[in-house]
Simulated scan of single mutants.
Amino acid sequence: MKFKPLLASLYVALPLLATSVEVLAARVTLKLAHNLDQSHVVHQALDQLAKDLKEKSNGELNLRIYPSSQMGSPRETIEMVQNKALDMTKASASELEPFVSEFAIFSLPYLFSDEEHFKRVLFGPIGEQITAKSQDSGFKIIASYVAGTRSFYAKKPIHSPADLKGMKIRVVPTPTTNKSMELLGASPVPIPFGEVYTAIQQGVIDGAENNIPSYYQTRHVEVAKFYSQDERVSVPDYLVIANSTWDKLSPEQQTLLMQAAKDSEILQQKLWDEEVIRSKAESEKLGATFIEVDKQPFRNALAPIYDDFAKDPNLSTLMEAIKTEEAK
C-alpha cells in the first residue's frame, strides 16, 4: 500500500516529463555567418530577426549569428551553406553571381532610374523571379536588403572616367565588375574586403568602390579622402538559408522565419536611410570630400556592357522587364 502514492506521483510526472522532452527536442538553433561588422545595419536587422524568432516561437526557434568573417569570406560561407556545414549566410548579389548568373543584372551600370525603381524590382515579381533561381544551387533566399549605390573613393578626386585611367581599384571580382573597371580605364584588383584599408594606405591599390555607410564604417575614409558620387550600381544583399535546413523546419517554423525575415527587410530599409545621412556627415567631419560628378561620361564609357548582356537570353529578358518596371 505504501507504494501507491509513489506510483500515483509517477503517473502525474511522466506525461509532464514526456512533454518537456518533446519541447527540448523541437528546439532549433540556426547558425548564420556573415562578413559585416556588428555596427552594420544589416547585422542590426539580423540581430532583431533573431530576437523576434526567439520571442515569437517561445524559444523554440533560435538564431546564432557569427559576424565579421568569423567563418570566412562570403564565397566560403555560401559554399558552406551549399555543403550543409552552415545554415544561413548573408551575401550580396555580386557574391551570388558565380552561383546564379541572373544576379549579374544588379551589376549592370545605371540600370535603375532611381531608388523607387530599384525597390519595385528588388521586392516585386522580378526580384522574386531572380531569387527563386537560387534553389537549384542548394539554397533559398528569404529576405532582400537594400545597400544604396556604389561609387568610387580614392586618394585623389575622380570627376570623370579620364581620372580613373591607370588606377588600381578594389572590386568584388565578377566578370561584370571587372569589365566595368577596364572600360573606365582602371585595373580591377580582387583583394579581400578586410584588407582594403591597409592596401590603400600602403599604395597597393589607389581606391575602391562601395556605398557611403561602408566607406565610413570601415574607416576607409581615413585613407581615401575623396568620394565621387558616380552611383553606378545598386547591389542588394540577401539572406540565404540552405535548402536542407529549410526542409528540416516544420511548416510553423518556416512561417515564423519568413515573417521575421520580412519584418527585418522593413527595419533594415529604415536603418539604412538613417545610416547614409549619418555616415556622410561623419565622413565630412573626418575630412572627406563628396564630389557630385556628371554621370553621362560614365554611362557612355560603360555602354558596351549592355551589348554583352543583350547576347544572353535570360539577362536580356530581365533587362527589358526592368525597363518596363521603370514606367510604372
Rank of each mutant, 00 (worst) to 15 (best):
V196S: 02
G138R: 02
A147I: 00
P304G: 08
E95Y: 01
D308Y: 12
L111R: 00
P213E: 00
V12W: 11
D163W: 07
A132E: 14
I277Y: 00
L30E: 08
Y145G: 08
S39Y: 00
S134M: 11
F99T: 03
D273C: 03
F290E: 08
P161R: 12
F118K: 05
K225V: 04
Q269C: 05
E195L: 14
E60C: 05
Q201G: 08
Y215H: 04
S180E: 07
R219D: 13
E292C: 06
E22A: 15
I205W: 00
Q253A: 07
V100M: 03
S39A: 14
L63G: 11
A91E: 00
G138C: 06
V28W: 13
I130V: 10
V146E: 09
T174E: 04
W272C: 10
T324K: 15
V81H: 02
A91I: 01
K248Y: 03
S113P: 01
D87T: 04
E128F: 02
I130L: 06
A147M: 09
S137P: 06
P157T: 08
E79L: 14
R64N: 15
D263E: 15
D136N: 13
D206Y: 01
L318E: 07
G185A: 07
G138K: 02
K262D: 07
D312T: 04
